[in-house]
Design a protein around this nucleic acid. Structure first.
Ligand SMILES: [Mn+2]
Ligand SMILES: [Mn+2]
Ligand SMILES: [Zn+2]
Ligand SMILES: [Zn+2]
Lengths: 151, 151
DNA sequence: AATAGATTTGTAATCATTACATAAATGAAA
DNA sequence: TTTCATTTATGTAATGATTACAAATCTATT
């Protein structure tokens, strides 16, 4: 895609094939993938891709502010091509990481600030953990069943 | 401390000497220490303490909700004995992790919610990265100096 | 004291990430 | 187009935090 080349160039990143693929993956997959998830997916179209290249490239992207590294998953770092201010939710049941935007959390923008006290803020991360709507429904249902079974 | 024993017991945690020491450390040190920092500090008074015990105990505390595990430091997990809703700031210059309470961030409580959409929220983490006031001042000063030197 | 259960300990394994050395690609002169 | 310097990519080895596991110790109860 021509615009990905431009996007990278604008941020001082020379657009190699690997870098374009990795950036494109992050822009088209809003799943906040781990390194391994990306590596497996990208290896299909780029069998020679090295995991080191993936790590190096992600580090470069994060440094240049075109990608966000999320810390809400203790096990693996997760990455996000959307650098606009938004929050994240991780379901501790199914593991998925969802975006939370203003429509669901209008108070969101109030905590994204440039400074707090005399501190200079460079990054804000607002993350939630709990049960996603699917898993919550299943849980309720299984409780209902267990009550029914007990009667 | 008698009240630490009680505090642990109230949360279904049998108060062994190790557990009391670890909890006491977290309640009296608001530095959001890493495992290693705690291990070194606690080893003074408990030379036989095992790092595995420290890991196990912290996991137990986090499960029982008497301690918070922070994910804002990519390298090491950090721990907090204060489980009340507040935000955290990590200085990327000096590395220190500071608390941010309502007095500095009145909007804080607005994002600590029990649910968002149909999601059930169990934990909220609001964390900032940037320059603390000390490091920010130093940086300004060093820029001033370099300007002065250039003239 | 004997017993059972919980807790602690030390060592070995795991696994994500990083370091490093080499190979390939790129791009500007000549 | 060759040449050469610089950047980027690759594979392997090392690191380092965390976890698994089995044995030792502690604690409470009979
Ligand atoms: Mn996102
Ligand atoms: Mn805190
Ligand atoms: Zn779920
Ligand atoms: Zn600082």
């Amino acid at each position: 895609m021509k615009d990905i080349r431009a996007y990278l160039s604008e941020h001082g990143i020379r657009p190699s094939v690997q870098r374009i693929s990795i950036m494109e993956y992050l822009l088209t997959h809003k799943t906040h993938p781990t390194v391994d998830e990306m590596f497996i997916a990208l290896s299909d179209s780029m069998p020679t891709l090295s995991k080191t290249t993936l790590y190096n490239t992600l580090k470069l992207f994060v440094d240049r502010q075109v990608v966000l590294m999320l810390g809400l998953d203790e096990k693996n770092a997760r990455f996000d091509g959307d650098v606009s201010p938004h929050a994240h939710f991780k379901c501790s049941c199914c593991g998925r990481v969802e975006d939370i935007f203003e429509d669901e959390l209008p108070e969101l923008n109030l905590v994204f600030k440039n400074n707090i006290g005399r501190r200079f803020i460079m990054q804000t991360e607002l993350s939630y953990t709990g049960y996603c709507s699917d898993c919550y429904d299943k849980r309720i249902q299984s409780i209902d069943n267990s009550i029914t079974n007990t009667i």
